[in-house]
Write a protein that binds this DNA or RNA. Structure first.
Length: 225
DNA sequence: GACCAGGCACATC
DNA sequence: GATGTGCATGGT
């Protein structure tokens, strides 16, 4: 096992010991996970939950329901998630794309090899790498590592990546360092988010962070240092 | 009131 | 190809 693999696994153990298994998105339907993946773009999950509740209350959480709903009405329902106009368009792009070949069969759409599914998702305007990977991992339940701003910030501060490393480079690092296990990828990402929310914030210091036992620079990636 | 949140596409240089 | 900008609500 390489030094990086070793450190990443030790970091996981430390995070999990602090937060416990996160069981992310476990109770939701595939449809909710896909819709949530778009709604959570640069947005707090608490806001996304409100928008999902609105969609559920109007029985709109299906491919065909969203495909036929006028964009302005959809925008109104997802308002709490922020960026509601652009996200309404992105949701429409997604459900229209699925509906074209699969009708209401989201599970059929998702049930393909991870690589092919990812490429297909990336062809939809409004679905970028993180959103695609979130859908592949959490909705399709296939092993792909999700990189987000927390992943970047935490790995940077722990000297595991360089400042200029891009999404695919970081994803490659994680996938080549960690065993390809669905539950590990799922929970590792969730643990990083928990660290990011609670300790490794953009400006605050990282006192009490369970990852402090590893070599790190709390100021890495900050503009004001 | 400022800061931040589980990004992405597009314009501009 | 790198960098900057618009999109917007709600919790802390």
């Amino acid at each position: 096992m390489s030094k990086t693999s070793d450190m990443l696994m030790q970091m996981y153990q430390a995070m999990r010991a602090r937060f416990g298994h996160q069981n992310w998105w476990g109770a939701d339907t595939e449809m909710e996970m896909c819709v949530g993946a778009i709604l959570t773009q640069n947005t707090n999950w608490g806001n996304v939950k409100m928008a999902l509740a609105n969609l559920k209350a109007t029985d709109a959480l299906s491919i065909s329901a969203l495909a036929t709903m006028p964009a302005p009405k959809l925008a109104e329902l997802i308002k709490p998630a922020g960026y509601f106009n652009i996200k309404a368009k992105r949701l429409k792009n997604f459900v229209t794309h699925v509906h074209k070949d699969w009708g209401d069969d989201l599970r059929g759409f998702l049930d393909r090899p991870a690589g092919a599914l990812r490429e297909d998702l990336l062809s939809v305007n409004g679905i970028g790498r993180e959103t695609a990977d979130s859908m592949v991992l959490y909705a399709a339940r296939k092993c792909t590592f999700v990189v987000d701003t927390y992943t970047y910030r935490i790995l940077l501060r722990h000297h595991l990546i360089a400042r200029e490393d891009d999404y695919e480079t970081i994803k490659e690092l994680m996938e080549s360092s960690l065993p390809c296990e669905l539950d590990l990828y799922n929970d590792y990402h969730a643990q990083l988010v928990a660290i990011g929310k609670n300790y490794c914030r953009p400006t605050a210091q990282c006192d009490e962070c369970p990852l402090n036992v590893f070599p790190h620079d709390p100021n890495a990636g900050r503009e004001d240092v």
